[in-house]
Amino acid sequence: MEQVLSFISENIRFIYLLILMVFLGIEVISHVPSVLHTPLMSGANAIHGVVIVGAIIVMGRAEPDNYLALTLGFISVILGTLNVVGGFVVTDRMLEMFKKKKK
């Protein structure tokens, strides 16, 4: 029990961040028109590609003889980049069409 409490106390800043971010996420998109559901989903999809930062850290800190970490790190960098690049490009393509409409 004390372990759990001390964990909460040690990470209290994260927990604040977590709670504020949850409310912010809800607030930011709660008035989105249904037309934009798909692009918004796609955009959010690209943003969670920020996991690439973790992949770079794994790859960058892998010791030269730790082949498991090297291989997996390399794979995760590729996967993360796919998520980021694909996500933003697909979203842009969808939104490009919306823009054209307004001519």
Binding site: F14, L17, L18, M21, V22, F23, L24, G25, I26, V28, I29, S30, V32, H37, L40, M41, A44, N45, I47, H48, V50, V51, V53, G54, I57
Partner: peptide, 20 residues
């Protein structure tokens, strides 16, 4: 990783995605 940008980006998408 104690990494702020991953935390904010991740949680933001987590909550916004759920509402969406």
């Amino acid at each position: 990783y104690n990494n702020q940008v991953m935390l904010t980006g991740g949680i933001l998408v987590g909550s916004a995605g759920t509402i969406l």
